[in-house]
Design a protein around this nucleic acid. Structure first.
Lengths: 138, 138
DNA sequence: CTTGACCTTCCCACTGCAGTAAGGTCTACC
DNA sequence: GGTAGACCTTACTGCAGTGGGAAGGTCAAG
């Protein structure tokens, strides 16, 4: 299998497969006489693992750790769980921040006529020097 | 006022003030004989506007548009509102994606013993070729 | 033998900053 | 006058994760 086939089967672009190889996230593949990378079913499995982890929002570094644990049959599930729950906490933080932004913006937008006139509470809030108009995010 | 004072008063680092100037987000300031940038209260106001927009999660590009509208006294509030509601939609999308990741991870983590043993449903899900174990995100 | 679909490496762009290096300048104190 | 240190200047590097493209080698079908 060449990189194109591996890409189609794993859902990871050829570009990213090369990148993951460069940063040591996947093992260096064998090369044919033409210097083409050569992949086997096991490598596809590996790539799908990465793709799934990335889909769940794990960073490449977290993904790297998960791969290491995956490969280590002596691992403790506690280590895996810690990475996962840490990531859940990160997600929670980000979600809360974005939700707060959203609430503020929704409130501002609700008070904006959204017509041809220049008067706009959104701009008024942004331009406001004082900490008054709306409860401030962050 | 030098850049340090502007930074303290606006809450934008000197680094970022120079950056915003370089990318045309703020007007080029006057310079003193020593080549130091010179800021006036009006510029602080400008910087605070940017900071507030950034705190609400607007991209620099969106911020640039908001500034343009802010400066334009002939603007229609509809344009401002459109940028804001577009951004709310972006926030919503991201929040939904992250919330979905979170749900999946919480579910997987709940089923993980988190002990010294290697058996782990999280890794099993990540390594799973089929679309079975848990409802897939994205 | 040509066409086009592959593959290769390498370099650049993006966002929104942070850091660092090498230098000039101002202020205060001795 | 000298010196310390707090400030300013430009310019370059890096980060995460890609996407894009150039310039070239390779392979299979027609």
């Amino acid at each position: 299998m060449n990189i194109g086939d591996a890409s189609r089967l794993s859902g990871v672009t050829a570009k990213m497969i090369r990148y993951y190889e460069a940063v040591g996230l996947i093992p260096v593949p064998l090369r044919g006489a033409n210097d083409y990378r050569h992949y086997r079913p096991h490598d596809i499995h590996w790539l799908r693992f990465i793709r799934r982890a990335r889909d769940l929002g794990f960073s490449l570094e977290q993904t790297r750790q998960l791969i290491t644990l995956w490969q280590d049959h002596e691992r403790s599930s506690a280590e895996v769980k810690r990475i996962a729950t840490d990531h859940v906490a990160e997600l929670n933080d980000k979600i809360c921040q974005m939700a707060a932004m959203r609430e503020t913006l929704v409130e501002l937008a609700e008070n904006c006529q959204g017509d041809h006139r220049p008067e706009c509470p959104i701009l008024r809030d942004l331009a406001d020097d004082e900490m008054t108009a709306t409860s401030r995010v962050s």
